[in-house]
Amino acid sequence: MTAEQLYEVPATVAFDGDRPYATVLLSRLGPDMPCFQERLGRGLADAERLLRERTRDASDHRVRALTGHLAATGGKRIRPLLVLLAAEFGDPGSEGVARAAVVAELVHLASLYHDDVVDRAVTRHGAASANALWGNRAAALGGNWLLARAARLSADLVPDALALNARTANRIVEGQLLELTGPGPGDDPVARYFRVAAGKTAALLAMSLGVGAFQARAPRAVADALVEYGEQLGLAFQIADDLLDLRSPEASSGKEQGRDLLAGVPSLPVLLAREGTDACDAELRELLAAGPAAGEGWHRRALELFSVSGATARAETLMYQRLDRARAALGVLPPLPARRTLDALCDYVALRTG
């Protein structure tokens, strides 16, 4: 596949017709091997059916509407795809692999309910957020319900997968709390950024790969390598999202360019600009400190400066370092189609920011 073909995979579309985004992504990233593509396609379809069932099986219809809301509005289903790819390194037909994929997506959905409450978001996946429809208290409890459902489903997983799921739930909540409290006196903001990203983004990608490998009874060394790959890919993914916010116009990214910048989100380029020493970063620091008080056009000027700032280039370098570490982790894996797909996913993360 050429770089141009790879980049044609949309970065924001959740569903293509009735197909989850993950299925579209797999068709572009995975090798042209019908058996491999069909097996993972069936796995994604099975996981999607189970997910819809398990998010709408509450006894009260009002609770069902709340807990099934985000699953019904879409989602990329990247985490279930990672579970299935990891299972390829063991026995992909093992009992419980589809359940493990649903557990990973349930934990992810729960984190989105909580994030939207904290961020006071009004939309998610192109539809009204749960908190906008039912209020913050109900949305927070809806997220808790999904976590409880994930715990109930994971109880039947193999012990290593169950333990990894429990550790990950703790890491995600800690990452959310770290983000909410912000850096304290003497904290290194960049180091804290990576701690938050590790908890909020990387931990769940790593868990998805780990539970898939454990449930399929892959060798321990393979499972450990997949977990490390997920950690590094997750950190690179977060940096890529930061760069996309500054670089991608709404027509291609699906959201307003610089939306996080407007909201005051301390992305990695912002943090690096605050530490920068060149003239460009000096002007950026003044604009960032003043915000809208800097006058009309401050946002446009900040985006212009970030396009040539050394801070943006440094953030991109850090992203590539994480992608290199992810690829290195794949080195111990057998040369299966799933390994080629995971390697191509690194290319996709990098190309999204181009």
Rank of each mutant, 00 (worst) to 15 (best):
F36D: 06
L268H: 06
L261Q: 07
G182L: 04
C346E: 02
V227H: 05
S253F: 14
Q238W: 04
R64W: 05
E256K: 15
R340M: 03
L235H: 05
L153T: 06
P334W: 00
K200F: 03
L180W: 01
G96Y: 03
F306W: 01
L235K: 07
A150Q: 05
L164S: 02
V332D: 00
N136M: 14
A273C: 13
D46E: 15
V24F: 02
V158P: 09
R56A: 15
P334K: 06
G276N: 06
Q257V: 11
A138P: 11
G68N: 13
V227G: 03
T168E: 06
P34V: 14
Y7G: 03
S27N: 12
G276M: 04
D187G: 04
L25V: 08
D32Y: 08
R322F: 10
T181F: 05
A128Q: 15
T317I: 14
L6D: 02
A138H: 09
R327Y: 01
D32F: 12
A202D: 05
V190I: 12
R19V: 09
R77F: 13
V308Q: 12
M207R: 08
V332R: 03
A3S: 13
Y320K: 13
T2N: 12
L26T: 07
A121R: 10
L81K: 07
K76N: 08
S309D: 09
P10G: 05
R149Q: 11
N170H: 02
S253I: 15
P266R: 08
V83D: 10
T353D: 00
